[in-house]
Structures are given as C-alpha cells and as structure tokens.
C-alpha cells in the first residue's frame, strides 16, 4: 500500500507565470516520455519479475516517479497562476484553457491525452528492464529539450533535478539487468528469459 507525504520531493518555486512554457513542460506529465507513464510502467511490471531485487527497484523507482508527477504538476500550476485573458490568448494557451481552464490535465505537449499506449508491460524480465532503461533515456532527452526551450531559472532548477534522477534511474536499471543476467545464468551471454509464470511468481509463500 501507499501513503502520502505532504511535501514535494524537491522544491518548486516558480514566481513568473508563463503559459507558453507550461504547454511544453506538460508533456512530462502526460506525454510519451512522461512521469505518469513511467510510474505506471514500473509499478505494473513488478508482478512478473522473478527476483526480489528487481521488484524492489521497480517499487522504489515507480514510487519516486509518482513524486515527480507531483513536481511537474506543481510547475504547471505555478506557471499558469493568475493569468489574464490577454495572456491566455497572446501566449497560445487558449486551446488548452478552453477544455481545462487552469486545471492540470495529463497530456502531451501536442495535446494528445495520456495513454498507456506509450508504455509496455511485456511479462518478460529482460524486455521490460531494457524498456525501462530506454524510458529513462527518453525522459532525460525530453528534459534536455525543455532546458533548451525554457529560460526561467526557477523552472530550470526543478527540471535539472528531474533530469538528474533519470540518469540515476538509468544506472539502477542497468544494475537490475546485470542482477537478472547473473541470477538467471551467469554464463548466459545472450540476455533473455522466457519469464511467463515463473515458479517464484506463482508461489504463495508461507510466512
């Protein structure tokens, strides 16, 4: 189960409204490389993982991604506070505003709503872990692009933190692949593992 801590994982203190930036950054909430997809992907991939270390990594990173969802949402919220009608029209925010006003809706920068189509739960240990490594790189490059497009230092500080976490998570998933490879067979140079319904996964353990 989960419980909620009433604080952000890293502070978000954006002073200047900027709906144009918000409509770009929102892609890291509901876009194909976004945090909501990351959290969903990792938490849902846990059930077919054969080793505790892998389930632990997916649980902890998946949970952290939920905290990142909240950070991105806080950035969007602060960038779209107290807007005048003129600002909404002038900064290209009207197409979002007409449906969502200043609510924080999970969508890509293109306007496409969040979709589980952007993630995979294959049930195969190596396929899933390699997807996870790729997902961290894709999130990292999205943050690189956001840093190219945004000028506000308050926004950049929060985005830099999120970018760094992608790099750390990539590292941990790399270790997860190595753990899986060593455990499945130390000599298995070709990492694959037909991991449908493993014995471990089906076992109901006595306490």
């Amino acid at each position: 189960m989960w419980s909620y801590d009433k604080r952000l994982i890293h502070p978000v203190k954006v002073k200047k409204p900027d709906p144009k930036s918000a409509s770009i950054i929102i892609t890291q909430l509901g876009g194909p490389h976004g945090e909501l997809g990351a959290a969903t992907r990792y938490l849902q991939q846990r059930y077919s993982m054969p080793y505790g270390e892998l389930i632990g990594i997916l649980t902890d990173i998946g949970t952290e991604e939920l905290a990142h969802v909240e950070m991105i949402s806080a950035i969007i919220y602060q960038l779209t506070r107290n807007l005048s009608e003129e600002e909404i029209k002038a900064q290209g925010f009207a197409p979002y505003f007409v449906d969502h006003t200043a609510g924080v809706y999970p969508q890509a920068a293109s306007g496409v709503p969040f979709s589980a189509g952007g993630l995979s739960v294959s049930g195969d240990t190596f396929a899933d872990l390699h997807e996870d490594m790729a997902a961290e790189q894709k999130a990292r490059l999205s943050y690189d692009n956001i840093l190219r497009l945004v000028d506000d230092p308050d926004v950049k500080d929060a985005i830099r933190f999120l970018r760094e976490r992608e790099i750390v998570h990539f590292q941990r998933f790399g270790e997860a692949v190595r753990i899986a490879q060593d455990k499945v067979n130390a000599r298995n140079f070709y990492a694959f593992n037909p991991s449908f319904d493993t014995a471990k996964a089906n076992l109901i353990e006595k306490c």
């Binding site: 298995n188 593992n193 493993t198 014995a199």
Partner: peptide
C-alpha cells in the same frame, strides 16, 4: 512437467534460483 523445468528446458538454463534457496 514442472514450470521451472519447462523454463530451463526452453532456455537451456538451470532452474531459476530464489533468494530463499
């Protein structure tokens, strides 16, 4: 056939180990 046997048979690998073992 046991699932673990089936797995190792398919992949040419020994059965999966668990932390317990």
């Amino acid at each position: 056939m046991e699932r673990t046997e089936m797995l190792s048979d398919m992949a040419g690998m020994p059965p999966l180990q668990t932390a317990k073992e």
